[in-house]
Computed example of a mutant assay.
Amino acid sequence: MSVAVSTLDGADLLDAYQAGQSSVFVSPRGTLLAEGVHSEVNTSGLADLPEQVAAVFGTCGHPVRTVIGAVPFAPDAPARLVVPRRLRRAPVLGAAPAVPAASAARESLPPIPDPGYVAAVARAVEEIQAGVYTKVVLARALRLAAPGFDPAPVVRALAYGGAGTYTFGIDLGGGRTLLGASPELQVARHGRTVSANPLAGSIPRSTDPAEDARRAAGLLESAKDLHEHTFASEAVAEGLRPYCRNLRVPSEPTLTATPTMWHLGSRITGEIVDPDVSSLALATALHPTPAVCGTPPAAARRAIAELEPFDRGFFAGMVGWADADGDGEWAVTIRCATAGPEGLDVYAGAGIVAASDPHAELAETTAKLGTMLTALGVFNVA
């Protein structure tokens, strides 16, 4: 990856992040700080995105040959991908400063009433049982007033707090920022190695160690959650198979922990066949996965349009970077918020299958909202 030489470490790059002037992406491989905009990728949707990025690399005449940004959920909505004026990279974050325990704070959140969501889940279960589709992911959105809000301290707290494997603060332009901490890797390519980690099947964590262990063990044995996870894992494997050889797909999921949730995850790896297939091309081939949409995708999209009373925007899209060599990392845009002049929109979703209980899905989405609400310091939501 082409980057400007920097002596800063990951903590320094996080400290240098300024919302509205830069974007930051933190992963297990290191921290990237993108400052300013040299070129922007102009695209009307998902279909031609990898080609448009390649065209920008070929014509921008800039030594930084990397894009960073976000792709929305809707396939016909414009992405926000830019070649920055300067891109700095640092190793993984070192020791974290003292931060509150997100899981403990999450336990203090009261239930967030949402009768509309409960009704939407109940209708989805009826349609699944009638054979209209097999799974759909239904989301909730909370609007919070936030005059003068600065995303930077929240992004730093998420990066240090272990709230997710992939932390991001992406400048969307117009005074808007996409921020969050996603536990889910959509796809990464480093050299010839391709990896993905679909997550599906979840349960809220507990601050009581014994209860937390019981919930984790129960998730591994839950027929409903294992069924839901199978949809996501098989879809990602099928999406990658045309591009990869030696594809390794776990026969059973393992546990992935965040401070607020236990998830079922499957680490899928393979070797790229055609070196001209970039990480972004792989990511667009997988988007959207059943973990954020459902199956079959077309029917699930129709259900989402009918049952969700808001535009997802960049929620349930993908966020990350790609360079001119084809390498890159793309996380699924979950556990996130969009901040702007109009306030903060916070999102969370849950996978609905035939055995779903509407009130349990409400509790799951409340726990997932807890990641962002805790980082924002919000503990009481009417």
Rank of each mutant, 00 (worst) to 15 (best):
Pro72Gly: 05
Val381Ser: 01
Ala360Pro: 01
Leu219Met: 02
Pro259Asp: 08
Glu364Val: 08
Ala152Pro: 04
Pro97Val: 14
Phe231Gln: 08
Ala339Arg: 09
Ala96Tyr: 15
Val292Ile: 15
Thr256Ile: 12
Phe231His: 07
Ala47Arg: 15
Tyr160Pro: 10
Ala285Phe: 06
Pro288Ala: 11
Pro253Ala: 10
Gly164Pro: 03
Glu329Thr: 15
Ala285Asn: 08
Phe315Val: 06
Pro100Gly: 13
Arg302Asp: 13
Asp212Met: 05
Asp12Leu: 06
Gly270Trp: 02
Gly173Lys: 07
Asp171Met: 10
Arg248Ala: 15
Thr7Arg: 08
Gly174Trp: 02
Thr371Gly: 10
Ala122Cys: 14
His359Phe: 10
Glu238Tyr: 06
Ser108Thr: 15
Ser23Ala: 06
Val71Pro: 03
Thr31Met: 02
Pro341His: 11
Asp150Ala: 04
Ser22Thr: 01
Phe168Ser: 05
Pro115Lys: 01
Pro28Gly: 07
Leu220Met: 08
Gly313Leu: 03
Asp225Cys: 02
Ala281Asp: 14
Tyr117Lys: 00
Val26Lys: 09
Arg86Lys: 00
Ala70Thr: 10
Thr254Phe: 09
Phe310Leu: 07
Thr260Lys: 00
Asn246Val: 13
Ala331Thr: 11
Ser108His: 14
Leu369Gln: 05
Ser22Tyr: 00
Arg80Glu: 03
Glu228Ser: 08
Asp274Lys: 05
Glu271Asp: 12
Gly239Asn: 06
Ser103Thr: 12
Ala299Phe: 12
Ala95Gly: 04
Phe57Arg: 05
Tyr243Gly: 14
Gly265Trp: 06
Leu172Trp: 14
Met1Gln: 04
Phe314Ala: 13
